[in-house]
Amino acid sequence: MPRLSRTSTPDFSGFWVALVTPFRDGAVDHVALSSLTRRLAGEGVTGFVPCGSTGEAAALDEAEQLAVLDTVLAAADGLPVVMGMSGYHLGKATAWARKLSERPIAGLLVAAPHYVRPSQAGLLEWFGAIADASTVPVLVYDIPYRTGVTIARDTLLALAAHPRIHGIKDCGGDMAKTRAVIADGRLQVLTGEDHQIFGTMAEGGAGAIAASGNVHARRFVQLVRLLADNRLAEARPEWQALQPLVEMLFAEPNPGPLKALLAHGGEMQDELRSPMTRASDGLRERLVALDARLSRR
């Protein structure tokens, strides 16, 4: 399990699944969540990231988030779990980081504060204070289209000096910045944009934290292993087969399409918390047809 120690550096490379949160009649469906986690653990994934945007964390209160985390930890079969967290009140965020650190987690995935749009100096204070409060490693979540603030390259490189910040989930949309962080070498770069798995890893990225991995996880695991071994010619057809799925899963707001496909397979109810909505009927039909074709390959 990736853990911070005085003698070793945590390794977050590989294929991590950004988990959905199943609901039934408005409540978290812990039976479905446990079953989903156990299935994915058996398909070779590196680990799990609950309570991110795919997990509809913004619609879960703190007690629900802790319960989700505990369910995933119990079902993960010893695989590492990185807990997502976000917010914009620094005092609450540091207290939450301390509380989450009491669980046997491998790390925290921390987004920039949303809504307030701080300066780069403010971002340094935000991530630094949370990393100081945490007793587990921290991954920076760079996702400006959700938070409203871009983490600059120099800011990321400055954060790399913190002894507890070890990586980045990269949804920044700036390949020049991605390349610079990879070249610097201190932070492991995991793409959080599923359609950039091939490109980021071919550039030297460490892996992915992907929502798409809730389905066809074995194929994504194989893709990432081939890319990690620099076997690009073998990875390319695997990636080309998965690209239509990735494109379709994000044709409407995530995780609506994912839940539609998982519900079709009987793994959970096709239920989200408002204002998130179910996938349209047309997209659901196309996803089911594509899923059937992939399953026959």
Rank of each mutant, 00 (worst) to 15 (best):
A279L: 07
A112G: 12
F15S: 02
L226D: 12
F220K: 03
R286M: 03
R286H: 07
R284F: 07
L124W: 09
D29A: 08
G204W: 00
I130F: 05
Q269M: 12
W96Y: 14
G128E: 15
G266M: 11
G256C: 07
V215E: 02
G213A: 09
G204C: 00
E62A: 04
L100H: 04
Q120H: 13
E285A: 15
F12G: 01
A202N: 01
E125L: 15
L33K: 01
R164A: 15
I130D: 11
F220S: 02
D229P: 01
D77W: 09
A279Q: 03
A75P: 11
A206D: 06
A75T: 08
L73G: 09
R231E: 08
S212R: 08
S274K: 03
G128S: 15
R98I: 03
N214Y: 12
A93F: 12
S34P: 05
P104Y: 04
P255G: 13
R6S: 10
T277N: 11
V136I: 15
L262M: 14
S101E: 09
A180F: 12
R293Q: 13
P163E: 08
Y115Q: 04
D154Y: 05
P257Q: 01
G185A: 10
G91I: 12
A32T: 03
L187M: 14
G204Q: 00
V181I: 11
L227G: 05
E64W: 09
L290F: 10
A206N: 06
I209G: 11
A180L: 07
G47S: 11
A27G: 00
T21P: 00
A63M: 04
L249F: 06
G14Q: 06
V189E: 05
G185Y: 06
E62I: 01
D170L: 01
A210H: 11
R3A: 10
L60I: 04
G44I: 10
S134F: 14
A263D: 12
L79E: 06
F198K: 06
D154V: 06
A217P: 01
D132A: 09
H264S: 12
G128F: 14
A158P: 05
V82E: 07
L73Y: 12
L69I: 14
P2I: 06
M1T: 06
L249K: 07
I197E: 09
S274H: 06
C171H: 00
V140L: 14
A18M: 08
A93V: 15
M1F: 04
D170I: 03
A158M: 04
H30N: 12
S34F: 07
N214G: 13
G52I: 13
V224A: 09
A263M: 08
R6E: 09
I168V: 15
G172W: 10
A263W: 14
T71S: 15
I182Q: 01
L249E: 07
W96L: 11
E102K: 04
C51D: 13
A58N: 05
D70M: 13
D174P: 10
L60R: 00
